[in-house]
Each structure stands twice: as C-alpha cells, then as structure tokens.
Amino acid sequence: MTKPRRFIERSDSEEYLHKAAWSVVKRQLQRAETERRGALYDDLVAMVFAFHSFEGYLNYVGEKIAPDLWKDEKHAFRSDIYKKLKAICELCNIDRPDKSKRPYSTIQALQTLRDRMAHPKTHRAKGETKFVEGEEPEIFSPTLLDTLVSHESALQARDDVREIADLIHPAARVRFPDVGLGSDPFEGILSMRTSSMSLLGDDPATDS
C-alpha cells in the first residue's frame, strides 16, 4: 500500500499592531461621540492608544528602513521617542517636527498621560478657596483626569499623530520603495502572511 505523501509548509507573517491600536483610537472616539455619559473614559483610552499608535508606527517604519539600527532600538534610543522620530526623519531626508509646537507637543502630552496610566499612583492635592456667602464653590472640584482628558484633546491627539505619520510615510516610501511600507500609515490590512509548501522527503533531517 502506498504511503500518503507528506508535505511541509513554511510561512512568514507580519501583524501590524500599530494599526490595531489605531483602530482602538477610532472606535473609542466614535463611542465618545455616540454616548456622552462616561465618555471621559472613552476619550482617555483614545488618547493613550493614540500614543501607542504613534510609537508603534515609528517602530514599524524603523524596522523596515533601518533594520540594523532597530535590532537594538532600546539601547540606541534609550526609550526616547523623539530620538526615534529624529532618526527616521533624517533617513527620509525630511525636517523633524519642532518639539515645542504642535503636532509634536501633543505627543509629549500623550506620553505623560500614558505614563501616568501605565504606572498609576494615588493623586493627592490640597487647595484653598475663598468665597462670599451665597457664592459657595462647587462641591466637587475637577479631578486630575478632568484636567488631562477631554474630547477635544482626544480629537487633537488623533489629528496630530496622523499629521506626523502623513509627513513621514510618503517620504519613506519614496526613499525606500522596496521595503513594503504600504500605502497608508494606519489604514489597510492588519496582517500579512506568505507561505510555501514542499514535499517532505525521506531525509531524517527534514523530518522534524
């Protein structure tokens, strides 16, 4: 009786997590606009994931256009996201955004918010309010999150992250046309997989 032939499949895949993070941003903003009750938390998630999207996008581009540098990116950049942005801009021959102005100043604010939520600590504050009879202050003062998060800030986060990515992406595609960056920084397919199949021979070295 003839033995059934055996095959081996080899595959390579990429999953673009910065695009998944961007989907979270869009979904949370939509929720915040649809249901305003509790929208502060939807806007908070959108802002935090806007930063994740930006950092992920820089790593995605960096790994494509400068793989040797990005092999040890933690050592090369010391977790400094602006250094990553500067390196990519230099490789793409474009001016890097001014740190003190939008859109990059928004990224700095988003990183501060992300760090607060990634390593949460009890926020303590003291205050003193003087008032006259009949003009009593509000019972509840704004919370820390009220001062850091708003729907307007979440929309600004989305727009400013997108602005920087739209500055980089076309320049990177022109300078590095063969690395497979895709047509859009955040939209499109979330993953890609290629595979090949071959007949598995009798060689024990291939039979593992």
Rank of each mutant, 00 (worst) to 15 (best):
A32G: 04
G180E: 11
V132C: 10
R96K: 14
I168F: 03
D203Q: 12
V149Q: 03
T2G: 08
E138L: 11
K19P: 03
D98Q: 10
G188E: 05
N93A: 15
P137C: 03
V132P: 10
H75D: 15
K86L: 15
A154Q: 02
A172D: 04
D184S: 08
E14W: 00
A125T: 07
P120I: 08
I81T: 13
R31G: 04
L69E: 01
I139Q: 11
K130A: 13
A171V: 04
K121P: 10
L144M: 13
K74S: 05
F140S: 10
T147V: 12
G188P: 00
K130C: 12
S208H: 13
L145V: 04
L40H: 10
E73L: 13
H75C: 15
P142D: 01
G182A: 06
H18R: 01
K3L: 14
V179D: 07
A87C: 09
I139S: 11
Y104R: 03
L17G: 03
P67M: 10
H52F: 12
E128L: 08
P97Y: 01
A109D: 11
L110F: 02
S141V: 13
K26D: 14
A50G: 05
N59M: 09
D146Y: 04
D160K: 08
F140H: 10
K83I: 07
V179Y: 00
Q28K: 03
M192Y: 13
E133I: 14
D72Q: 12
K74Y: 09
S191H: 02
L91D: 10
Q111P: 07
L199V: 12
V161C: 04
T122E: 15
I65C: 06
A125M: 05
H151W: 09
A32Y: 02
D68V: 04
Q111K: 10
V24M: 07
K101L: 09
G38C: 12
D207P: 08
L91C: 13
I168A: 00
